[in-house]
């Protein structure tokens, strides 16, 4: 007998506690467990993701964008792109949605004590990184310099605008926010230029440092040479993959990259691990 009595496909019911409009078609949900027992059982680590569902419409995959140090809730940020994300966008505060997770591996943040961390993100690539940023900031003494380079196409596309202001105001964070040339507004006070160029200008030290990169493929592609030039190597650069996913637990087969299941073996990997994979991401 297999003696398997745990139906892993049943989600936790979550109440939408707060909805934040981040950018056009981009929202953040703060979700609280509808059943207190679920909350007590639940824990996750930076880099993990989940399956969020609207009953009757289906499930969609996003990272947990809040920090594991904030235990009363989880947050997710999503862009309206399909059937489920559109249904999610139509939800209101107080509504119940489903959540399965946490799934996947984690950023090895425990191994980064005493190190400098460089966060590089573009557009909607900030949410997975934001989880680690807050995790690091909530345990600020554990880490050395923290540098954040974040860019979007236009000013309105920048997500977490209030938090960007908060990080800007902190003396223990070096924040560089940029928009693509032509994407600036008249009152824009940040940088103008592409992320790789701003990264090069900021030139964070690679000494005793790790870099986390997440964003559009072209941004990643062009940021990597800059990082290597600065002295980062295959083992000090990390990213997180996003492939189409359905089950989140290594069964449905959608997210595979060669023998690697993004949902189970990933989504977090070092540059060295990424290079070992076939180009199916």
């Amino acid at each position: 007998m297999c003696n398997c009595n745990n139906n892993m496909y049943i989600p936790y019911p979550m109440r939408i506690a707060k909805i934040t409009d981040e950018a056009p078609s981009v929202k953040t949900f703060r979700l609280e467990f509808a059943n207190p027992d679920d909350k007590d059982k639940f824990s996750f680590k930076a880099g993990q993701f989940g399956e969020y569902s609207v009953y009757g419409e289906g499930e969609s995959t996003f990272c947990i964008a809040s920090s594991p140090t904030r235990k009363d809730y989880i947050e997710c940020t999503f862009r309206q792109a399909g059937r489920v994300t559109n249904a999610l966008a139509n939800c209101e505060e107080g509504d119940i949605i489903g959540f399965r997770g946490p799934y996947g591996n984690t950023f090895p943040i425990d191994q980064w004590k005493g190190k400098n961390i460089v966060f590089i993100a573009g557009g909607i690539g900030l949410p997975p990184i934001r989880c680690v940023i807050w995790n690091a900031l909530d345990l600020r003494d554990n880490f050395n310099d923290i540098t954040i380079v974040y860019g979007a196409r236009k000013v309105e596309d920048l997500v977490y605008k209030h938090e960007l202001a908060e990080w800007e105001a902190r003396k223990d964070v070096n924040l560089l926010v940029t928009v693509d040339p032509g994407g600036e507004t008249p009152d824009w006070k940040g940088k103008v230029g592409f992320v790789p160029a701003i990264l090069k200008e900021a030139a964070p030290s690679a000494q005793n440092s790790v870099a986390l990169v997440c964003g559009p493929p072209i941004m990643i592609k062009l940021s990597l040479p800059v990082l290597f030039e600065l002295g980062f190597n295959e083992d000090s650069i990390f990213t997180t993959l996003e492939n189409r996913m359905k089950c989140g637990i290594g069964k449905c087969g959608h997210c595979t990259v060669g023998p690697y299941y993004v949902c189970k073996d990933g989504p977090v990997l070092s540059y060295r691990e990424l290079m070992a994979l076939p180009q199916e991401y």
């Binding site: 496909y9 009953y55 009757g56 419409e57 359905k246 089950c247 069964k251 087969g253 959608h254």
Partner: peptide, 10 residues
């Protein structure tokens, strides 16, 4: 063994 997941419901 690959599969899709869909909701069928009101």
């Amino acid at each position: 063994t690959c599969f899709d997941i869909q909701d069928e419901a009101s």
